[in-house]
């Protein structure tokens, strides 16, 4: 799967879809593949403040529990209930139905475009 060009990416393997001052956040296919089958998700609460580069939740796979980092700073205004109910969406559709949460952004962390992210994960 090549990484969608309309999204931006972090070195921590998250993607964001910016829309005005809000951003939808998820993890990339590369991350989902490395994590293994996701079995539980702990997403930040509605209304919670998240900080760019800091852990805001957890993704539990069959083999481990990993921190979920926020790529942006702001207030969580939406959380994906569907992923909470069916965590396998993170593996089957990481860029679509597997989205995790939406933030009203006050600050972004370091972001890169799809080409830069492709190069990063190609082992360049």
């Amino acid at each position: 799967m090549s990484n969608p060009t309309h999204l931006q990416y972090t070195a921590e393997h998250e993607w964001i879809a910016a829309d005005g001052d809000t951003a939808r956040v998820g993890v990339t296919a590369y991350a989902a593949d490395a994590l293994g089958d996701v079995v539980y998700v702990d997403l930040p609460a509605l209304g919670a403040t998240v900080t760019a580069g800091e852990s805001c939740g957890e993704l539990e796979s069959t083999k481990s529990v990993s921190d979920l980092y926020s790529p942006v700073t702001g207030e969580v205004i939406e959380v994906n209930e569907a992923v909470d109910a069916d965590p396998s969406l993170v593996n089957s559709d990481p860029f679509g139905e597997g989205w995790l949460f939406v933030v009203k952004v006050s600050n972004t962390g370091e972001l890169m475009d799809a080409a830069a992210y492709d190069a990063l994960i190609a082992g360049a």
Partner: peptide, 25 residues
Amino acid sequence: PIERKPSWIRTKATMGPEYRSLKSL
């Protein structure tokens, strides 16, 4: 059903440069 893991089972899923390079190789 799949069991939740205890607090002491955690890893940091950091896909660093050596990981990516090895994956390529």
